[in-house]
Design a protein around this nucleic acid. Structure first.
Lengths: 214, 214
DNA sequence: TAAAAATATTGATCTATATCAATTAATTAT
DNA sequence: ATAATTAATTGATATAGATCAATATTTTTA
């Protein structure tokens, strides 16, 4: 994204950026709050979730890691956050004023294009998630969750995660009890190994089949 | 959106645009097809839906009417359509090449900003829909569906629609049988009147309460 | 290290909603 | 107008997954 900026603009960002360090569990920003800065994850991991104002339920939309950037849909619209960002572990985030972005978009068309490309790629993922969460049953949704973690987040079929069972449930839009039962089933069928926060995907093909059959 | 273009650019659009007339039920473009043009709905109504490649199920994301424009998330990413657009009634759509858009974005920063604003406002609506479809039960989802049609589409608490019961089900991510049963319940409780495709919302407050309580 | 708190697990039960099947009503075609 | 399709409705049934409750484990705090 930033590669489209001029040297001057990069300098300006560097001089004005504000780096913040978060501990695990700390909130970076919350739904409803003012969207004043774009955020770039420099190190650590962040979970992004939608909060339902009328219930305690939430959906974990995605997990971000370096060097992901966060510029929510409030940008250029209502200037408020539409999702909540929480550090999953020790995390460093770099804040850049949105006003600066608007300037960059005006002075640098390549940058505008890059931002829109970024937003559109996120929308494609949201569409997939929407179909998964509304049409698949719990086994299919949990398969999607495990494949997401292995393929997109940890980039390894063996991984340890700080995500709780409730978090996995929130990724998959189901209850933690159901999550636990399905993880147990998958373990018993030899599809995965799952001990506390240690996961191993043994039979990815089968997981993909379960994902497709729903 | 187009108000940000120069006279020359508007002329260029006007000289190069291609107007197509569709009958009810005709497909304008389909998921997976190449995204070559942006589309502007000049007259009529269009339903936009996500298709699941692994099942026959679909989600109607939104309904478009004049002068909505359609520029899906394939723009600047994979150049393919991620949703399907079908004319609900006699509809005229105006096609504008995406290559032209990229040029406009380069030469006209205001235009880029307007496009991103448009996309972001759609994303906000998607977030709400995602929460509604995954966390609410059928009554809440059907209340949301009726409120959407009355408030955003027909802009009247009394409306006739060409949408079938299956379409209403696809808006709400449920079966047509459940849709029918809930519409009947709402009618019996005096919340709505519903005869074939004629709808009247009698007690909007109650509908809003049902929407909130889920 | 012990106590307290939080998280995970298991089992039993309940219910919302899908599914299936049959009937009726409304369109469309002949 | 009548037949043939297609869509809507109703009823009966099945079941996936939520909910509730109790216990066990892990983590945190004192």
């Amino acid at each position: 994204m930033f590669c489209y900026l001029s040297d001057d603009q990069l300098h300006e960002i560097n001089d004005n950026r504000r780096e913040v360090r978060y501990k695990a569990g700390e909130t970076i920003f919350k739904t409803g709050g003012p969207l004043t800065h774009m955020i770039c994850i420099t190190s650590g991991m962040v979970k992004i979730y939608l909060e339902d104002e009328n219930s305690e339920k939430r959906i974990i939309l995605s997990i971000l890691k370096p060097v992901d950037l966060v510029l929510g849909p409030g940008f250029l619209t209502d200037n408020s956050h539409h999702f909540t960002a929480v550090a999953m572990e020790e995390t460093v985030a770099c804040f850049i004023k949105v006003s600066r972005h608007e300037e960059f978009m005006k002075s640098n068309p390549e940058y505008s294009t890059a931002i829109l490309r970024h937003v559109n790629s996120k929308v494609i993922l949201q569409f997939q998630k929407m179909l998964s969460l509304t049409h698949k049953q719990t086994h299919g949704k949990m398969a999607d969750c495990l494949l997401y973690l292995a393929n997109s987040i940890y980039e390894n079929d063996v991984f340890d995660t700080v995500l709780s069972r409730q978090d996995l449930a929130d990724i998959s839009a189901m209850t933690k009890e159901t999550t636990i039962r399905i993880l147990k089933e998958f373990s018993e069928e030899g599809i995965i190994i799952c001990n506390n926060n240690h996961f191993e995907i043994l039979d990815k093909e089968k997981l993909e089949k379960i994902s497709i059959s729903g």
